[in-house]
Amino acid sequence: MNDDVSKRRLGRGLAALIGEMDQPVVADSEKPNVSPDRMVPIEFVSRNPRNPRRFFDESELHDLASSIRQHGIVQPVVVRTLSVNQHEIIAGERRWRAAQLAGLVEIPVIVRNVDDKTALEIAIVENVQRSDLNPLEEALGYEQLIAEYGYTQNDLGEIIGKSRSHVANSLRLLKLPEPVRDLLAGGSLSAGHARALVPTSDPAALARTIVSKGMSVRDAERLAQNDIKAQSEPKLAAQLRDHKDSDTLALERTLSDTLGLDVTINHKATGGQIRISYKSLDQLEEICRLLERR
């Protein structure tokens, strides 16, 4: 796909294609890319291993399965053909899973001939537009498009119909450690909770506190700000402590040259410290001899 075609597709937005995918449109005769509705054996359909969605609520699947037993699958599953009698899901994995629970032997599909890149884009858009992805799955999907296909955050914003800042904030969640990611994926933490934890010193510990106390996002933000402030105070104190005038620095160099060892002077108005660093017992003995002679 050349750049011009890619830009036109981006400008149009894959969100618009979701509606088209779910309709049995007759394709252009010269370049067919959509096949009308048809029924295929369910064993001929497999999940897309690159689908960003990983979590499916079991109770919701059983509820959908009950509905399918009564009414059938109202909306076809969108697939692409991999080989004879082998189709891979582009959109509709939840319906496919529920159909298996319902005991269906065949399901309605729409076949759409797309490449790996477009299939991944459509899977992400379809799930994002329907709020089917948890925040971590959404972020991992964005990361996959960026890593494998060189998308920018602006490109992704155009595709999914979100702002660039939304994409950036989603990607920030991937900086969190695994225990916090697990809480986020399981729904114990919201994206707002998790984003507040990114710059903190111990996100996992703070996440446990947030969950155990049932904190709101606003409370979590205050907790995170207190942690960040606690981190910065020792650094500021160290910077103030380490700020030395030229006379003190000159004296440090003179003593270091005389002893052949590193000498640090921490001078204050009320007093101070001289620290002599040594690396061996021989150096320590030499310091002791010098002090005894004085």
Results as ranks from 00 to 15, higher is better:
S188A: 15
L176T: 02
L184R: 01
A204K: 12
L183W: 03
D202K: 08
A185F: 06
L197E: 00
A194Q: 03
A194I: 04
A191E: 15
L184M: 12
P177K: 10
L174Q: 14
A204P: 08
P199F: 03
P177T: 08
T209V: 12
D182P: 07
G186C: 10
V198G: 04
V198S: 04
A191F: 07
L197T: 02
S170P: 06
P179S: 10
H193V: 06
R195Y: 09
N169W: 07
N169M: 10
I210W: 01
R181I: 09
L184T: 03
A207N: 05
A196F: 02
R195M: 11
A207F: 00
L197N: 00
L184A: 05
A191Q: 13
V198C: 04
T200N: 04
L183H: 09
A185K: 08
G187W: 14
D182A: 15
T209K: 11
D182T: 15
T200V: 13
D202V: 11
V198D: 01
S190E: 07
P199D: 05
L206C: 08
E178V: 15
S188N: 13
A205M: 13
A191Y: 04
A207I: 05
S188C: 07
D182I: 15
V180Y: 02
L174P: 09
R208A: 15
L184N: 01
S188F: 10
G187F: 12
R208S: 14
L174R: 11
A185S: 15
S170R: 02
T209F: 06
S190M: 07
P179W: 10
T200P: 02
L176K: 00
L206S: 05
T200Q: 01
D182R: 14
T209A: 08
E178R: 15
V211W: 05
S188W: 08
S170K: 04
L184I: 09
L171Y: 01
A196D: 03
G186P: 06
A196P: 02
S188K: 14
T200R: 01
H193C: 07
V180F: 04
I210N: 01
A207Y: 01
G187K: 12
N169H: 11
L173Y: 03
A196W: 00
G186V: 05
T200M: 03
P179E: 11
N169D: 11
P199V: 04
S201H: 12
I210C: 06
L173P: 01
L206V: 07
L176V: 11
R181Q: 15
A191D: 14
L183D: 03
